[in-house]
Structures are given as structure tokens and as C-alpha cells.
């Protein structure tokens, strides 16, 4: 009995240690963002500054280009996640349900695209986009992000479709639905958790992408937020307070987004569909 209790306590402690370890950088982000500049170095590693301030936030919002970065990131991440989810759910459905010529070659090809380090691709992509006028534009970024995320998202969606019994759409088709109507009315509602997961995954990936944003965008007008963060690093100093304040604000949409979709992520919608 006591052995079991000890085990439970040890288990909870291990989880607690993990959570502290994982969340500590976030806490530090928050802490530095409210620390006045004059205390930043003098108070060193104190867990909380002796007096907190929102000056950095005010400065970032009023005097920097951060609102523009924020808006750009929102546009890019939002469009990318919607485009990728729409494409990958159709492609994933096809991979899950249909037998067609070249299916395995296609899957192999999609896997291969995931093997290259992105750095290798920066130059050719820049070369391709620049004559099209897509460098230094948000559209260009959305296209590139979509291209890179579709293969993985397709596999993700395929696994969700695989989890939905084929009988369901067959029953719908016998009930009088075309395949597309069965997909829309029966399969899609059951795949909402998968769609939410894919949306969330792609949104955060596009939200925090730096390499391509840095290489394809020059100038503040169409810079995304990760690129914008770098503007707080000047040749002679790093403005940590403002940088962290911007970072905290950049977390907000991601948090809101996951708050919105978490109910689908945890919901087992297919329960009761078939025997079980």
C-alpha cells in the first residue's frame, strides 16, 4: 500500500520536474520582459525583479515595427495553415482510400522531399521566386511554406483518415450520398480532431519559421515576427527587455489558437461508430 503511494508520489514528482524544466524558459521570457533595463544586469539571476514594469511592451507597441511584423506573421501563418490543411486533407483522403497507379511512387517522392536540409534549398528557391516577383512578398512565403508542409501534413491527415472505418462512407454511399457528399457530411466531421491537429501543427511551424523568412524578405514592410525579433539586436547591444516583450506577445496567437482547437484535439469523436 505505502509502496504504491510512494510510487505515485515519485511519478507526480517526475512529471512536475519535467513541467518545470519545459516551462522555465517561458517563465524567464516573461520575467525579463517586465524587468526594467537598469535592473536587468544588476539583479542578475533573481527569480523576479524587485519592481516590474510594462515599459518594454509600451515601447514595442508604440515605437517599433512590431505590430507590422505581427500582422504579417498572422497573415502568413494563417493562410499557410488553411491552405495546407485543405490540400492535405484531400490528398490524405485519397492516399487512405483509393488504389491508383503510381501511389507508392508518389508517397516515396513526398518522403524524399522531407529529407533535404532546408539550407540547401534556400538558394534555388530564391532563384526561382525572384523572377516571379515573389521575393520580399508574403505570398511568396505562403507558397514556400505550403510546399514544405503539405507532404508531412498529408501523412498526418492520412493517418487520421485511416482511423475512420471505411464502412461509414460505404454506408453513406449506399444511403444515397455521392463519395464527395459522404466525405463532407460523414468523414470530415469525424476528422475534426485531425484537422485541428494539422492546423495547429502547420500554424506553429509557419509562425516560428526563420530561415526562409530571413532569406526571402528584406525590409520591415513584409518581415514576419521571427525576423522582426532580430531587429532588436543591433551591432552594439541587444535590447533584451523589448525583445522578450515582443516574444511574449508573439506567444498570444499560438496560445489562443490551441485554446480554440484543444477541444477537438482531446475529443475521441469516432467512439461508438463501430463495434467497441
Amino acid at each position: 500500500m505505502t509502496g504504491r503511494l510512494l510510487l505515485t508520489i515519485a511519478h507526480r514528482l517526475a512529471i512536475l520536474a519535467y513541467i518545470v524544466f519545459a516551462l522555465f524558459p517561458l517563465f524567464w521570457l516573461l520575467k525579463v520582459s517586465v524587468t526594467p533595463n537598469d535592473l536587468l544586469y544588476s539583479e542578475g539571476v533573481r527569480l523576479w525583479p524587485s519592481h516590474a514594469t510594462l515599459d518594454h511592451y509600451r515601447f514595442v507597441l508604440e515605437n517599433s515595427a512590431f505590430p507590422t511584423f505581427f500582422k504579417n506573421s498572422l497573415i502568413v501563418a494563417g493562410s499557410t495553415s488553411v491552405a495546407v490543411t485543405a490540400l492535405s486533407s484531400l490528398a490524405g483522403y485519397a492516399l487512405s482510400r483509393f488504389r491508383f497507379r503510381g501511389k507508392y511512387a508518389l508517397v516515396a517522392l513526398m518522403l524524399i522531399t522531407q529529407m533535404f536540409p532546408l539550407v540547401m534549398l534556400v538558394a534555388p528557391i530564391f532563384k526561382m521566386l525572384s523572377p516571379l516577383g515573389l521575393t520580399n512578398s508574403l505570398t511568396g512565403l505562403v507558397i514556400v511554406y505550403t510546399a514544405f508542409n503539405v507532404p508531412f501534413a498529408t501523412f498526418l491527415m492520412q493517418s487520421f483518415f485511416d482511423g475512420i472505418p471505411k464502412d461509414l462512407e460505404e454506408a453513406a454511399m449506399i444511403d444515397g450520398a455521392s463519395r464527395f457528399v459522404a466525405f463532407r457530411q460523414i468523414i470530415l466531421p469525424l476528422t475534426l480532431p485531425g484537422i485541428a491537429a494539422t492546423l495547429g501543427f502547420v500554424f506553429t511551424a509557419a509562425w516560428s519559421e526563420l530561415l526562409f523568412a530571413l532569406m526571402l524578405i528584406s525590409g520591415n514592410a513584409s518581415a514576419t515576427f521571427p525576423v522582426g525579433l532580430l531587429t532588436f539586436v543591433s551591432k552594439f547591444s541587444v535590447d533584451f527587455g523589448q525583445m522578450m516583450a515582443a516574444g511574449v506577445m508573439a506567444l498570444i496567437p499560438a496560445c489562443l489558437f490551441f485554446l480554440l482547437i484543444q477541444r477537438y484535439l482531446v475529443q475521441g469523436l469516432t467512439a461508438g461508430a463501430v463495434k467497441g
Partner: peptide, 9 residues
Amino acid sequence: FQSYALYPH
């Protein structure tokens, strides 16, 4: 169907 295939939603 053997699995009944009821629409769960």
C-alpha cells in the same frame, strides 16, 4: 454492415 457503421456524430 457487420460493424453497424452508424454515423457517430
